[in-house]
């Protein structure tokens, strides 16, 4: 059983940072919705407040880690130019997708959208975390700010969801491959 270094990085980016961010985002949305829709939110205990601030900060780190590894580690492998007359495009995912009418849409719509929309997630969640950390329990006095934080967190979730969906599908049709091979274990024939 083996895996290439590029696949490991794709896993770290997608399953590690991206999927974990989506999970964390769904939890934050529930909490923020509860807090926002209440006309007189209960004052959180210092422990609850500390937890929410830490949770939001962790989301910020996950979101930035996901877009930065995506743009600066994986994307260069994805968009690598194939030498002229290369017949086997398996090491050039973008060219591989563009070589067939059945898969070109995964690049022209999927990657073209994903590579930009994904960045709305860290920008939005950084703002949301800043407001939560800056205002703390005082946020219960600012209904409009709470509403805006909830809206931007929702957009962040949708943006990360779009990026995650297209990332998974693109990696299914044209996986990023290559690099050192890591031996994970030896399978046994049955």
């Amino acid at each position: 059983m083996e895996i290439t270094m590029r696949s490991v990085w794709t896993l770290i980016h997608g399953m590690g940072f991206g999927a974990l961010y989506l999970l964390a985002c769904s939890g934050a949305l529930v909490e923020l919705y509860r807090f926002t829709t209440s006309t007189d939110p209960a004052e959180p205990t210092p422990g609850q407040e500390r937890f929410l601030k830490g949770y939001m900060l962790a989301m910020v780190l996950l979101a930035w880690a996901a877009v930065l590894t995506g743009a600066y580690v994986i994307y260069p492998w994805y968009r690598a130019a194939a030498p002229p007359q290369t017949a086997d495009l398996s090491m050039f995912p973008q060219r591989l997708l563009m070589s067939s009418p059945g898969t070109i849409g995964w690049h022209s719509l999927g990657m073209e959208w994903k590579e930009h929309v994904a960045w709305f997630a860290p920008i939005s969640i950084t703002m949301a975390a800043f407001v939560v950390i800056r205002y703390g329990r005082d946020l219960r006095h600012h209904r409009q700010l709470r509403g805006a934080v909830l809206s931007f967190t929702l957009v962040s979730f949708v943006a990360a969801g779009i990026a995650g969906f297209f990332g998974a599908m693109i990696n299914k049709y044209a996986p990023v491959q290559g690099g050192h091979t890591l031996q994970l274990g030896r399978g046994e024939g049955k």
């Binding site: 939005s124 703002m127 407001v131 205002y135 700010l145 805006a148 931007f152």
Partner: peptide
Amino acid sequence: SGAAAILAA
């Protein structure tokens, strides 16, 4: 401060 962060985003 919150409004500034929201508009900047």
